[in-house]
Every structure is written in structure tokens, then in C-alpha cells.
Design a protein around this nucleic acid. Structure first.
Length: 233
DNA sequence: AAAATCACCAACCGCGTACCT
DNA sequence: TAGGTACGCGGTTGGTGATTT
């Protein structure tokens, strides 16, 4: 029966001596050679993650953390590749570090960004003046055409996701025009009869070449009105 | 002081791939 | 070429000590 769980000092010593004598590799033979009641996987892991003399102990230095972040951006969760760039650090160490420290940091950062985006959008919408010609374009979201002049040929990509489908179109590029258009949605006349929500949708807009302008969610009210709640910029 | 919660990290597990027969 | 075996990797779990309530 194979032993499991934490390694004892005696087991560590047996494995260390075995590795000194025979070197790494041939893990199938290691338990027998070392006189251990452990499976080859367990022996390999114990050596590579703990006993191997090259392993660096202690906290990660600033530059190591910086490197991990940059490599993770580049390589994703390919811990062994990342570890290959950090002498003395094991993939397991880096993975553990990432899962305990960085995940939380990233979540906090995202929260912060979301709050800033929401605040900026609110401010921006409030700051916009009505179009100089005084005309407001009444949105007709139920027939939002991908060929619409308002959606054509400019600088950003608009995505409207209804309950059933996702449509992509190109709305006006100049940011001011774009915001203007959305502001017309936001400042549709209020009141005037009963509101009946007949559908919901998600909307987001990104600049050509990347970068989100804003996103939000909305409701189709009656047959032609919509209400939109923007949460980002 | 005790219980609950959190943080850390060693170890296990399952899967994909390489290698061998 | 197919099947079996070994290795390596990443995700997850569980034990333990530290901290908070």
C-alpha cells in the first residue's frame, strides 16, 4: 500500500540520498531505489517542488513579482514556462503565489476600474450639451438597422445583445457624436402613459482597434421607446 | 480563551502528450 | 499503426498556523 500525505524527515532523507546517487529521471524506479512506500508521482513532486537544491525559498522579490505579472500576461497559466524564467522558483510556487495574492489584487483592481468608469460616464453624459441644430434623434431600437446612417462607417463598433441575438454594427465614430446619440436615448421624454417592458438587451461600444467606450443594459418599452442604464465608459 | 475565518502552500488528481513496443 | 506506459502540467484540495471576532 502506498503512503500518502505529508512527507516525514526520514522520507525526505531517503529520497535525497537516492537522487544524489542516481540523479533525476526514471521516476518509476525511484520508490524502489529509495526504499520509499510512495508512488513515483509523489516522489517526483516532492523532489521538484521541495527537495531539489536549486529551489529558492522565501518571499518573492519585487522584480520577481513584476516578471510573473508580465509573463502571465504573455503566457497565461502556463506556470512551468513562467517558472523557467525565474531561477530557483517552481511552477507550483508561482501558481500558489498567483492564486493567493494576484487573483485578489486583480479583483480589487477591476472593482476600482469599474467604479471609475461608472463615475466618469455619469459625469460625461451630464456634461453633454444638446446638438446645435436642436434636433434629437429618436431611437428606434426595435428596428436598429445595421445599415443605419447613424451606425455606419465611423470609428467604433457597437454591440447590441438582445435576449435572443447578438448584433454588431458600426455607429458614429467621433466620440461626441456617439455620446450625443446615446444621450438622446438617455433623455427621451419621460412619462406619458403606461410603460410596458417588452424586452431587454445589453449594449456595449468599443473603439476600433480596441478599448471599450461604454456598456450598459436596457429595456424595450412599449413598441418604440427604450431605457438604457450605462455602467461604463 | 475559544471559535470562526483566512491565508498559505504541500500534495493529490486527472488529463494530455511523448515515447516505447 | 495501435495500445500501453511514463512523464509533465495545471487545477484543486486539505492541513495547518495566523488572525479576527
Amino acid at each position: 500500500m502506498m503512503r500518502k500525505g505529508a512527507w516525514s524527515k526520514e522520507e525526505d532523507e531517503l529520497l535525497r540520498k537516492c537522487m544524489e546517487k542516481y540523479g533525476e529521471g526514471k521516476w518509476r524506479q525511484v520508490p524502489l531505489r529509495a526504499g520509499l512506500k510512495r508512488c513515483r508521482k509523489s516522489c517526483r513532486l516532492r523532489w521538484l517542488n521541495y527537495l531539489c537544491p536549486n529551489i529558492k525559498r522565501g518571499k518573492f522579490a519585487e522584480d520577481e513579482i513584476d516578471l510573473i505579472i508580465r509573463l502571465h500576461k504573455l503566457l497565461g497559466n502556463r506556470w512551468s514556462l513562467i517558472a523557467g524564467r525565474l531561477p530557483g522558483r517552481t511552477a507550483n510556487d508561482i501558481k500558489n503565489y498567483w492564486n493567493t495574492h494576484m487573483i485578489k489584487k486583480i479583483a480589487d483592481k477591476q472593482d476600482e476600474i469599474d467604479k471609475i468608469k461608472a463615475a466618469t460616464m455619469k459625469q460625461k453624459v451630464n456634461d453633454i450639451k444638446p446638438p446645435s441644430n436642436g434636433k434629437l434623434i429618436k431611437p428606434k431600437p426595435r428596428t436598429l438597422s445595421m445599415k443605419s446612417e447613424r451606425l455606419k462607417g465611423h470609428g467604433s463598433i457597437l454591440t447590441v445583445q438582445t435576449q435572443e441575438t447578438v448584433r454588431t454594427a458600426t455607429p458614429p465614430a467621433p466620440e461626441e457624436a456617439e455620446i450625443s446619440w446615446w444621450r438622446t436615448l438617455l433623455h427621451e421624454e419621460e412619462g406619458g402613459g403606461e410603460e410596458e417592458v417588452i424586452g431587454k438587451f445589453l449594449v456595449s461600444s468599443e473603439k476600433r482597434g480596441g478599448g471599450e467606450l461604454f456598456s450598459g443594459e436596457g429595456e424595450f418599452i412599449n413598441d418604440f421607446d427604450i431605457e438604457i442604464d450605462l455602467w461604463g465608459l
